[in-house]
Design a protein around this nucleic acid. Structure first.
Lengths: 110, 110
DNA sequence: TGAACATATGAATACATATTCATATATAAA
DNA sequence: TTTATATATGAATATGTATTCATATGTTCA
């Protein structure tokens, strides 16, 4: 064992329609440019809502709504520090899915 | 070299906003339960439009529209055989992204 | 307690999109 | 060529959703 994740999900193991539905819901959350930008920002830093809003030149409310969607999908998590709430990525899947998506978009590794 | 893909996409390499936008567009295409079901069917077989429609109990037109979206995103490709047109998955990224998404949905490998 | 600041949230609106319907295109067989 | 079959497609509709606006909640500090 080397500490890395070695889950082997065979696609044949998929049983339920529900599982496919939840998969599509996950990608739906990733399928918005504002949320993708937020995730990208969080790769680099733990950030509070207003800093994300500033960085993306969007309102605090819009960002807060999107963070809620990301949190519901367990893509980000948050902790309070005083008045501000700091957001980070939730787990490593986010990074890996993001990277694989990039490979596809860039059309490399065919 | 062992024939596997070893692309190392460092996230810091992302330069353009355009790249992030295209990434979100990719996930948007994956973020629909009909299209996810189509992709799932294509893991197992090369299939024609009407068979996919039958399998999902949907109209030929609806499936054709969704296949067009999948094709535009280079997630599926097709070839003609007589009157029918057979669809398959385009590249291996689809499988890997799908698997990683499943891991996340299942909440394992944390 | 009250003021200031940070974030969350419900409702409304504006925009995007999945499906349907009708029809066009393309191939094969008679 | 005509008919039958398979797929694609444009327009319309119905549904979903991102953002905005107004406001509520929660925290800190005076």
């Amino acid at each position: 064992m080397d500490g890395m994740c070695h889950c082997e999900n065979e696609l044949s193991e998929i049983q339920t329609e529900r599982e496919l539905y939840e998969l599509s819901e996950l990608f739906k959350v990733l399928g918005d440019s504002t949320r993708i930008k937020i995730i990208y920002l969080l790769f680099e830093n733990e950030m509070c809502v207003c800093d994300i809003a500033d960085e993306l030149s969007m309102t605090q409310s819009a960002i807060s709504h999107q963070l809620k969607a990301l949190k519901l999908a367990r893509l980000v998590k948050c902790r309070r520090r005083g008045k501000t709430i700091l957001y980070t990525l939730d787990d490593s899947h986010v990074t890996n899915i993001f990277k694989l998506g990039l490979e596809h978009v860039r059309g490399i590794c065919e």
